[in-house]
Amino acid sequence: MNASKPILDVRGLRTEFRKSRKTWFPVVNDVDFHVSAGETLAIVGESGCGKSMLAHSLLQLLPKRISRLAAGDIWLEGRNIAKLSEEQMRAVRGKDISMVFQEPMTSLNPLMKVGQQIAESIIEHEGCSHDEARRRSVALMDLVGIPEPAVRAGQYPFELSGGMRQRIVIAIALACRPKVLIADEPTTALDVTIQAQVLELIDRLKTEIGMGVILITHDLGVVAEWAQRVMVMYAGRKVEEADVETFFSGPKHPYSAALLASVPRPDAIINGGRVEPLTEITGTVPPMDQLGPGCSFADRCERSADICLAQQPQIEMLSNGARVACLRAGENA
């Protein structure tokens, strides 16, 4: 695939939140990853694992008062956007990197016609005329598969269904043909048949525009079907990264493996097979401000040893090509 030259290359990213006046704790810790044009990278994890924090950090959308980008570089086509000022960042958002959020209703202005909302975004970044922007917004609505785009452009968000609204949000995100699209749980609020439509749309536009997609989700099925590579996060860190074929053939980090095994898989039991209990992960995700020195998954891990509590595992490449942060991953997996 297009793995040759990454369009977005994140190195050693560390985002911290304020705990008290002087102390900070990491919510995203030492994360490396990259996305190439025409590629979808899925970021997976349970709530509180830091995947949304990571996405917001890329665009510097976290509140400055309580958070800071403590270390790391975010290379967007040879330009380090981690060092940009708020002013310069504003030009990047929506133009070079766009974001689609989970709930389409809250990311649209309820009092503005949808066509106008798309046009606003075009005018903001490209400064073209209103007529030109309007023409392009109708074309964009056509691109994202909205029937009768000229009519729909004159409607308000509440007049559209959830699926249609999410298409509008995507149209706004794509208005300036961004290089990277971050989709944060884009289909969680949608019905299954609509979910497939929206993911298919993102997949099609990815190749048409030639952008890289970062798909943030908790749904491993969605990952298998729509991503090329997957990165699993736990307690703010990357614990595993692999291409989907490798990953779903057998995840190597105990957390990834347990996560995959906890998904109900009816196919195996449908024809008289015995119903085995699903794999449970005991305990809860530790609070990010109370992490010990060792592996943060150690106290929930079935394979943990004494060393896991003492030493922070580093990402290492395994023989199957997966990158895993586990001290015991190399041992007979």
Binding site: V192, T193, Q195, E245
Partner: peptide, 12 residues
């Protein structure tokens, strides 16, 4: 249609 919309966590 519902069945075909299930995304299965299997290798592609």
């Amino acid at each position: 249609a519902l069945f075909s919309a299930i995304a299965v966590p299997e290798p592609p």
